[in-house]
């Protein structure tokens, strides 16, 4: 635990500063400092700050998406070439050629896992801050003993402490006022439902609208679909063991993701996906209304004649060309690409 706390220390420091800062700001606006609502708003503000800090990454994604539109025809060609091919090698080759195309065009539609990874220590840091404060212990920076005690006593609707978990309320571990148990259980249950709902919608939006047909035919898609139904169970678990305050952070963050996802899918869909078709139709309609010629006609004319249905031999690098000769035949349904390329003994 010691090592983890050391890593989380700077994060906790910042989170406490932000949380206490917002709390006193809301207090200065006339909100009751000891009330649950002032802390809930402080947590909401914290989410907004964290997510807003990630906006530059988001903007970068938008910019690269513009260039994506330019290479959409080439991308389509690659996708057509591998249409209906579900074996491991075709899918790996599809992914490889797609990435080579992005690289050549100097663009990349993916934002890496860093934005996702960054949020995890923040979440754990917040978890530590709120659970310590819930016990009435002073934190590492601005969360003083007095404030921690105030937080520990802050209640939503005068009944449900933000530091309480459903588990503690039911087992009687948490000392609650009359009706407090019901309030904690109810609030946690509502948050679980909202959290599962927003996550479900976000995930469904991506899956149903923003994936190319190749992706939808892949085993990855099946796994995603299973997880779509498993995640609410994860939230149920968190709803029992996480303090209300932490769940609230997660909930607001989920809502932010849902909104951002909606914007991305609407305005910069993955080429070849249903959302991309919908966007093309919207643009076509708009241009018709304005009396402009349909988009893409001019480009079609001077597109090079590469659209032959036959599989064109892609140029390959020296090392890959060498490897290609040795590739042993693979079971077509091993689709993870995990079995290595030189798996079989040579002799």
């Amino acid at each position: 635990m010691g090592a983890i706390d050391t890593i989380l220390w700077p994060i906790r420091w910042v989170i406490e500063a932000l949380l206490v800062g917002f709390h006193s700001l809301f207090e200065s606006w006339g909100l009751e400092g000891a009330s649950g609502i002032s802390w809930v708003l402080a947590i909401t503000a914290l989410v907004l700050v964290v997510r807003a800090a990630l906006i530059p990454v988001f903007v970068r994604q938008i910019k690269s998406q513009r260039r994506m539109m330019e290479i959409a025809p080439q991308l389509k060609k690659i996708q057509d070439k591998y249409k209906g091919k579900k074996d491991q090698f075709s899918r790996e080759a599809l992914s490889r050629e797609t990435m080579a195309l992005y690289s050549k065009a100097g663009t990349n539609p993916f934002s890496s896992c860093l934005p996702l990874l960054l949020q995890m220590p923040i979440f754990f840091g917040l978890f530590r801050v709120l659970s310590e404060a819930g016990l009435g212990n002073a934190g590492v920076s601005y969360m003083t003993q007095d404030l921690a005690v105030a937080f520990a006593n802050a209640e939503l609707f005068g009944l449900a402490p933000l530091s309480a978990t459903m588990n503690a309320a039911i087992s009687g571990e948490a000392v609650l006022a009359e009706g407090g148990t019901t309030a904690v259980v109810l609030i946690a249950a509502v948050m679980v439902v909202l959290m599962s709902g927003s996550q479900f919608i976000t995930q469904l939006q991506i899956m149903a609208k923003n994936q190319s047909e190749e992706m939808m035919a892949s085993p990855m898609y099946r796994q995603q679909r299973i997880l779509l139904y498993v995640l609410p169970l994860v939230f149920l678990f968190s709803g029992v063991f996480f303090p209300l305050g932490v769940m609230f952070y997660w909930l607001v963050s989920n809502f932010w993701t849902m909104g951002q996802q909606f914007l991305v899918i609407r305005n910069m869909p993955t080429p070849g996906s249903q959302a991309a078709k919908a966007r093309d139709e919207r643009i076509a309609k708009k241009r018709e209304k304005l009396g402009l010629p349909p988009l893409g006609e001019a480009e079609e004319e001077d597109a090079p004649e590469q659209t032959k249905p036959a599989q064109r031999q892609q140029p390959v690098g020296k090392s890959r060309a060498k490897k290609k000769g040795q590739k042993p035949p693979k079971k077509p349904d091993d689709d993870d690409g995990l079995a290595g390329q030189a798996a079989k003994p040579k002799g």
Binding site: R96, M99, A100, S111, S112, Q223, L227, G337
Partner: peptide
């Protein structure tokens, strides 16, 4: 293997490279 089966599909492709970081 477990990570790629259970956690990776949660957020789809985000990796800027091929192969992805986990692969």
């Amino acid at each position: 293997w477990a990570y790629r089966k259970v956690i990776s599909p949660l957020y789809g492709q985000v990796c800027r490279y091929h192969p992805s970081c986990s692969l």
